[in-house]
Design a protein around this nucleic acid. Structure first.
Lengths: 164, 164
DNA sequence: CTTGACTCTGTAGTCGGCTACAGGGTCTAT
DNA sequence: ATAGACCCTGTAGCCGACTACAGAGTCAAG
């Protein structure tokens, strides 16, 4: 997976192992705009700069990006990832926090699955009911107006905390 | 369109079934701002106006709002609801369209449930693995860095069509 | 006449995670 | 010298369904 190092890069700024943003993007599969966005979100710290202002990344940024991808895959938000990284950089071990987040996600997910399954049953029931009914006249569509669906079904949406 | 409504709307309003927006909001449980938003989205048509510009709704707007709530509970987007309403107003019967949307929702939902269940299994497996591991050192948190989670788990997010 | 409840329009903010410019500057190969 | 690839900052847009003003006008009661 090692790329050919052009001599231009060898003599630029620092010795090898320093990557410009485009190279980081290629190697990580994460878009340039996204990398800059992550930086603004506090996920990448402040990379070094050449004299002309170009970002020069140490190769270990790739590990960091890999970490971010994995954490995202586990359901971590960027804000959570940022917190974990900054804890680590403050010298703490973030593992218990990490465990906590995943545990919380799992509980939320179970809750969510229950809601969606309830919702699925309702949808399926409604469809079955409709298949036996044919078109029903109404103000707009009698099928909807007459269906037994509960308003509480709104639950199938945003189950984040707060609001309403 | 609507007859001129002069002073003493209050007395007109109640017996004749004309409602100001605040009254509609109270009776439907939908916020005033949201009612105006729905109007902009083409869900409510253009209500009559008093000479001073106040919206005056016919009582049947409440049925319309009830319809919107039910349709939302069934998973319809506001755009879909708007289309269905305009079809009806163009003289067509939107019921088959309605059936189609629900059928589509159900299929999407099944797909989604599969993804989330896969994701749930992964999360649970990861957590179990971690409980046996204790804290693991790493660049940030070895638990994440060493976990067997697949990047494809990103699937648990946005399953809308298109992109990426 | 004043108060206070109500309404109007128009615009912008929210949430998350990007993505897309515009309008520059820098670097490298020919 | 110049083309073209690359990089910079800063800002705005996207998705959906709201929600929140600001600043102005309206209306009935006391």
């Amino acid at each position: 997976m090692s790329r050919a190092i052009k001599k231009s890069e060898e003599r630029d700024a620092k010795p090898r192992g320093w990557l410009k943003i485009g190279e980081v993007s290629r190697q990580s599969g994460i878009g340039i705009e996204t990398l800059r966005f992550y930086e603004r979100q506090g996920l990448l710290g402040s990379p070094g700069r050449t004299m002309s202002g170009y970002r020069m990344y140490d190769a270990d940024v790739l590990d960091r990006l890999e970490f971010i991808k994995r954490a995202q895959a586990l359901g971590f938000s960027l804000a959570e990832i940022a917190r974990i990284i900054s804890e680590k950089e403050a010298g703490q071990n973030p593992c218990s926090e990490v465990r906590e987040v995943v545990r919380r996600r799992l509980n939320e997910l179970d809750e969510r699955l229950k809601q969606l399954q309830r919702y699925r049953r309702e949808l399926a029931a409604v469809l079955k009911e409709w298949d036996e009914a044919g078109d029903v006249e109404g103000h707009i569509c009698g099928l909807i107006e007459g269906s037994k669906v509960r308003h509480s079904s709104q639950e199938h949406k945003r189950f984040k905390k707060g609001k309403r």
